[in-house]
Amino acid sequence: MKPVAEMSALELSAWVCDALYRQGIEVVLSGGACVMIYAENKYMSYDIDLIDCYITPRKKLRSVMESLGFSEHHRYFVHNESPYLIEFPAGPLGIGDENITDVYAIDTPLGQLRLLSPTDCVKDRLAAFYHWGDLQSLEQALLVAMAKEIDLENVHYWSAREGCSEQYIQFTNELKRRQQ
């Protein structure tokens, strides 16, 4: 196995995700680390958010993470050989009022990583822009949309249900401008 100190965010996430899955704990990568993977490192994040799809007792999560060499510090798990912090936001897996049922998987030599689809990753970042005015999240959504094929009709429909049609137009106008 590759040393933890040499693992990329993708590799570390896959290794942890796979180890948890083997113990019956289902997690899905979201947030900035998901953006980093899809945007091919044009955005950097050292926070790995693995959404706990079910309500896993913290004691069980802690046991698996400790077996991998992590220790718990407040809400994060840290490994002394890695710059990445791992957090387990509670499920259910969703973006705004929409539950997520389809997830992507990336197979790596260190295990399988389950993560939001590129379209859902864009919606996840747009949710922070829509509801909190977070311009960094808008930038992240644009980076993913520029790097991967996304379903803009799906994003448009979701945006309307979130009551954010005007912000969606801002997003698509900026996307079109950058694609020219």
Rank of each mutant, 00 (worst) to 15 (best):
M1P: 07
M1Y: 07
K2I: 14
A5Q: 13
E6I: 05
M7K: 13
S8C: 05
L10Q: 03
A14L: 08
W15T: 03
V16K: 01
A19W: 02
A19D: 02
A19E: 08
L20P: 00
L20R: 01
R22K: 15
G24D: 12
I25N: 04
E26N: 14
E26G: 00
G31A: 03
G31Q: 05
A33I: 07
A33D: 03
C34N: 14
M36R: 13
A39E: 03
E40Q: 09
N41E: 14
S45N: 06
Y46S: 12
Y46W: 14
D47G: 06
I48Q: 02
L50M: 14
D52G: 10
D52C: 05
T56D: 07
T56I: 14
K59N: 10
L61S: 02
R62D: 15
V64R: 02
M65A: 01
E66S: 11
H74C: 11
R75S: 08
F77C: 12
V78N: 08
N80H: 11
N80E: 14
Y84V: 03
I86T: 12
A90I: 08
A90T: 11
G91V: 04
P92C: 08
P92S: 08
G94E: 11
G96N: 08
T101P: 00
D102W: 06
A105N: 09
A105R: 13
P109E: 15
P109S: 13
P109A: 14
Q112H: 01
L115G: 00
L115A: 09
S117K: 14
S117P: 10
P118D: 02
T119V: 08
T119Y: 04
K123S: 09
K123D: 02
D124N: 15
A128W: 09
A128C: 13
H131F: 10
W132L: 12
G133R: 06
Q136I: 09
Q136P: 00
E139Y: 13
E139A: 12
L142N: 02
L142W: 06
L142E: 03
L143C: 07
L143P: 00
V144Q: 05
A147H: 07
K148A: 03
E149R: 15
E149V: 05
I150W: 01
E153L: 11
E153M: 09
E153R: 07
E153N: 11
N154I: 01
V155W: 02
H156V: 01
H156L: 10
H156T: 06
W158S: 14
A160D: 05
R161K: 14
G163W: 04
C164Y: 04
E166M: 05
Q167T: 04
Y168F: 15
I169H: 04
Q170T: 11
Q170R: 11
T172E: 04
N173Q: 05
E174I: 10
R178I: 11
R178S: 04
Q180I: 15
Q180G: 15
Q180R: 15
Q180V: 15
